[in-house]
Design a binder for these strands. Structure first.
Lengths: 345, 345
DNA sequence: GTGAAAGCGCTAACAT
DNA sequence: ATGTTAGCGCTTTCAC
C-alpha cells in the first residue's frame, strides 16, 4: 500500500551482506551467534558495522517460518482487574524474559475457545499458560492435537495434563490455625466458586484444620460461591443474617474479602472486635484496606514463573500436577484478633 | 527436534488442496474470503470440507511474511498491579478484537527501550500503544524510523506525535468544585510525579478551579510526587504535619488515595469528618475502601479503545493530542463531606 | 573461513 | 472458474 513517509525501505539480510561484502548466510550466522561459525575477526566486525549502520532487525515472520518457532508464549487470565493476576503475570514475564521469549498476556477467550487452538496451530504461540476457566473437552483435545504444550496455572483444568497450583489446602489450614490460636471456636468460610478446584482445596484445608483443632465443622458456616467483591459481600450478609454468626471467617480470596469487609461495615459489625477476617492471597492492597487484612501469602509470581518453565520443558514440571509450596505464609495484620469473650473489657 | 507424540504433522495449504482436488491458490482465496473469487458452490464446499477434515489452520508466520502484516498490536503499561490499567487494557482488547487483531499486552521495557524498536522493526507488531514512561529521544526516533505507528495513551510522551489523553484538567476541576460546594476553603492536592504531564494537568485544573472559586492557591498545600500507595501515604503525612492542614484534599489517583487514607487513619484523622478526600479515577475498588472514596470517573476503557483505533488509522485520531472527554464524571461517596466548622455539632 | 542453494507456507498478479 | 508462478526474508546443510 502507501509507503509511509520516513519509512526506510525494509532492510534485509541481503542488504547487510552486500554492504559488508559477505554472503547472507554469514550475516545470519553472525546475528545468531552460531558457535560453529569460524570467521575472521575483521569480517565479523565488518558485518556488525553494517548491521549497525543499516539498523538491521531480523524479520520475525521470516525467521519464524524458517525455524518453526515464534519465541512467544501465551498467558490467558480471566480478568486483569483481579490483582492476583498482576503477580502471576509478573513472574511469568520475568521467566519469559530470561528465556529470551515474549509473553503474550491477554484476557481469556471465554466464548471463543477455538482461538486458543488457532493460536497454537497457527504457530503464533509455542505454548499456552491458562489461568482461566474450564474448557470444553473438544477444545482441549484440539489443543493437545497441535502437539504444543499447554499448562494450567493456579488451578487444574480437567483434561489439561499439566498444572501448576499453590498449596491451597495448607494456606487455608494456616489461616484457620491462626484464628483458632486467637481463641475462636466458631469459624466460618466464605468460599470460592463451586467450579473451581482451587476453591475446593481451600475448603478442604479449612475443614481439615477445624478437625485438627477439635472443632466441629458446621456446614451452615460455609457460604458464598465466587471470587469477586460482590460475591464476598453477599456471602458476608448471609453469614451475618444467621442466628448464630461465626466470630471469625476465612475468605477464599482478597477480592471477596474486600466485599466482605464492606458488607460487615454496612451491617454494623466491627472487624476484628465483633468478627475476625482472614483471607488468602497477600497483595499490596491488603495492607491498605481497613482494617488492614490478615492474609496468607501465596506463591503467585512463582506460579507464573513455573508456568513458563513448564512450557519450555523444565524437568521439574514434566507431567501432572505441580504444587508450588513457597511461600505459603501467614501475614498477621489488623483484621484478626481474639473473640469478644476472650478479651477483658 | 523430537516429534511430539500425537502431533499430527503440520497441515499446509497443499494438503488441503490435494484433498479437495484444487490448486493451493484456490484454497487460499477461500480461506481469506476473497470477494473477487468466482467459484462453484460445490468446489467451495469441497474445500471447506477438506479444511475441516484436516483441521487446517493457516501458518501465521508464512502469512505474515507474505503480507508483511502481523495482525498484532502491542500495548505496554508500567504496572499490571495498578488497577487503572486493567480498564485501559479492557477497552483496547475489545477494539483489537473487533478489528480481528491480537493485542500483545506487556509490562513496559523500562531499561530496555530498544525492545520497542525491535518489535516494530522486526514486524512482530504493527504498531505500539505506550502507556508508559518517558523514553529517550533516540529511542523515539528509532521507533518512528520504522514507519510504524506509535501512540501514547493516558499521557503524552515528548517526541511521540500522537497521544490519547483524558480531560485531566476538567476532572481535577470537577473534584475541587465539589469540595468547594461542600464548604471547604483550604483544599490541598496530593499530586502525581513531576515527570508526568497528566499529573501536571491535574494540578493545573486544581489551581484553576481554586481561582474560579475565589480561593487562594497555597503552594504549601500541594504535596507528593507519585502515583503509588507509598507516595500517597507519605504525602498525606506531610500534609498532616503542616501547621494548618487543609480540610479537604484532592488526590491525583486511586493508588495514592489508598495510601493517603491509610496514613490519615494512622494519624488519627477521620475521613471525612476531619478531612475530606477525593480522588481521580473510578474503579470498583474505590467503592470498597473505607470510607468509600469519592472519585471522578475517567474514560479509561475509552482511551484504550482510542489507542487501537489510532493505530489502525481512524480519521478521528490522525495527528497530535486527542482528548477523550466522556465520561468525566463525579461519583460522590463517603469520603467527602462538609468541613467541621460547617456542621452543627 | 566463506559461499551456494533449497525451501519453510503462504498470497496475489497474471494466465488460461 | 481455476491453475501457474514468483517470491516474502530467513536458516542451514553442504560444498569449496
Amino acid at each position: 500500500m502507501s509507503e509511509r513517509k520516513g519509512a526506510r525501505a525494509r532492510v534485509t539480510l541481503a542488504d547487510v551482506a552486500k554492504l559488508a561484502c559477505v554472503d547472507r548466510s554469514v550475516v545470519s550466522r553472525v546475528v545468531n551467534n552460531d558457535d560453529r561459525l569460524v570467521i575472521k575477526k575483521e569480517t565479523r566486525a565488518r558485518v556488525l558495522d553494517a548491521i549497525r549502520e543499516l539498523q538491521y532487525h531480523p524479520n520475525a515472520a521470516a525467521r519464524s517460518l524458517r525455524t518453526a518457532q515464534s519465541g512467544t508464549f501465551g498467558l490467558f487470565i480471566p480478568d486483569f482487574a483481579n490483582p492476583i493476576y498482576a503477580e502471576i503475570i509478573k513472574g511469568a514475564e520475568q521467566a519469559a524474559m530470561e528465556q529470551g521469549c515474549l509473553l503474550l498476556t491477554g484476557t481469556a477467550f471465554e466464548d471463543r475457545p477455538e482461538r486458543y487452538v488457532e493460536m497454537l496451530a497457527s504457530g503464533r504461540v509455542e505454548g499456552l499458560i491458562l489461568a482461566a476457566d474450564r474448557l470444553a473437552p473438544a477444545t482441549i483435545e484440539a489443543m493437545i492435537a497441535t502437539g504444543r504444550p499447554v499448562v494450567s496455572v493456579n488451578q487444574t483444568i480437567p483434561g489439561v495434563r499439566r498444572s501448576i497450583v499453590a498449596d491451597d489446602e495448607r494456606a487455608a489450614g494456616i489461616a484457620v490455625r491462626h484464628l483458632v490460636e486467637l481463641g475462636h471456636e466458631r469459624i466460618g468460610h466464605i468460599r470460592g466458586p463451586a467450579s473451581s478446584d482451587t476453591a475446593k482445596r481451600r475448603l478442604g484445608g479449612y475443614v481439615q484444620a477445624l478437625h485438627a483443632a477439635g472443632l466441629d465443622y458446621d456446614p451452615d458456616l460455609v457460604v458464598g460461591a465466587g471470587y469477586t467483591i460482590e460475591t464476598g459481600a453477599e456471602a458476608m450478609r448471609e453469614l451475618l443474617a444467621a442466628t448464630d454468626p461465626p466470630t471469625a471467617v476465612l475468605v477464599a480470596n482478597v477480592a471477596s474479602a474486600m466485599g466482605a469487609l464492606t458488607a460487615a461495615r454496612a451491617g454494623g459489625v466491627r472487624v476484628p472486635d465483633d468478627m475476625s477476617v482472614a483471607a488468602i492471597h497477600d497483595i499490596p492492597l491488603a495492607a491498605n484496606l481497613w482494617p488492614a487484612l490478615t492474609t496468607v501469602r501465596m506463591p503467585l509470581p512463582e506460579m507464573g514463573r513455573a508456568g513458563v518453565l513448564a512450557l519450555i520443558g523444565e524437568d521439574a514440571y514434566l507431567e501432572g500436577n505441580t504444587v508450588v509450596r513457597d511461600p505459603t505464609q501467614l501475614i498477621v495484620r489488623e483484621s484478626t484478633g481474639a473473640p469478644a469473650d476472650h478479651r477483658t473489657r
